Computed example of a mutant assay.
Amino acid sequence: MKKLLALAVALILLGPSAALIGVGVLMNPAATAACLPGSLIVGEVPDSLTATTRVGEMVTLNKTQLTHAATIITVGARTAGVGRPGVVIALMAALTESTLRMLANTSAYPESANYPNDGDGGDHDSLGLFQMRPASGWGTVAELMDPTYQARAFYGGQTGPNYPSPRGLLDIPGWQQLDPGAAAQAVEVSAYPDRYQNYQPVAEAILAALTRPVTSGGGGGDSAPVVPETTRLVFPLPEGSWVRTSPFGWRDDPITGERAFHAGSDFAAVDGTPIYAIADGAVVFAGPSGGYGNLIVIEHTVAGQRVASYYGHMWDTGIYVSAGETVTAGQHIGDVGSNGKSTGPHLHLEIHPGGYGADPVDADAWLTDHGAEGITPSDAAPAACTAGGA
């Protein structure tokens, strides 16, 4: 913390004024695209789908199998930190283990036939979509015959039903850097570790077929993204990694010296500190934007209201999402930088109730009022050492 306080004293940080929104964001072609691919919002499930594996085999899936895939996608979209890469890995695993069938196992567990199933499997004492074993601690027979439970267990993490063991995907250190097949194997611990890569093209075809594109909400028009109610709210920086440097409101611009309105809240942090999405949502803009440097804009649904969050000043290499992607609360979307109108590494955060392009409010106060994880009412005031900052 002493290092952070010294950083706050040494740096004069600022974020752009609200006037930059119209110039920097709305004139960017990416912000006004009519249709943006990459959503995790499941649309109508087709009656069948045929796709080709990596080795050239044709696979045809029926509506029941695709409905299980939809469950895996939906659970992944609602699980912080998973994103599209994690969903692809989960689909690869379920395709390999069960061909996306909810399998009973009457030889090991006769009672498994009493639950909805798509047939009887016979792989030792494994059950369900991901062929999980009660004896290994994945859950009871009743739990493992529930597709939603199995998907949650596969993704794992601190909210997973199996935490901390056996490990789900989110419990595998550095899973994002692994080959997708290797990541699936790290969870499944199969005797045949090379099988999963074969189904990656099929998993990607399923995801493309079952999810619908998110439309841009630029300017707050009728083309706003359809985003489910968020499951949680979080502060966008890791606990203990930041200090406040410039609050929302009128101030003397640290560069021009002129009186100007500061539309966001600035948080000093070490260059490269992870930035998290504050809530589940859809990315409607990600890229260069005037004084913001690199900017990410995400639209959310919070307490039934459309809300946009803006994250500014990332370096070119410190932005990890694209327009059209669906993200989850707490997902690592970028890294702290000092690009654009900035004199030191920090996050410039804005909150816009009403959505993309609507008027901003005090981000600090909004997060506190809405009970975001990682922030308390005592955090609401800027640190005394930052007086006159940015």
Score class of each variant (00 low, 15 high):
V321S: 03
P29M: 13
D118F: 14
A384I: 12
M27E: 12
S136E: 13
I73G: 02
I21P: 00
P29F: 06
V270L: 11
C385K: 01
L91D: 13
I172T: 12
P382I: 14
T328A: 15
P213L: 05
Q65F: 04
V297S: 02
V59Q: 13
A77Q: 11
P377M: 01
M1S: 10
V302I: 15
D146V: 02
V189G: 10
V307Y: 05
S39R: 14
S342H: 01
V55F: 10
L40S: 10
D266S: 10
C35W: 05
M58G: 12
I41D: 14
A34Q: 09
A30L: 15
A142I: 08
P228I: 05
G240T: 13
W315Y: 04
L170G: 14
F154M: 04
L61I: 01
S126R: 06
D47W: 04
Y199K: 10
S190Q: 08
L127W: 04
A380H: 10
Y199D: 13
A31R: 02
I89A: 04
V59E: 06
Y155I: 05
H313N: 11
R195E: 12
G371D: 09
S241C: 09
V283W: 08
Q331K: 01
G121T: 13
A182P: 01
G337M: 03
G324V: 13
L49M: 14
P382Q: 02
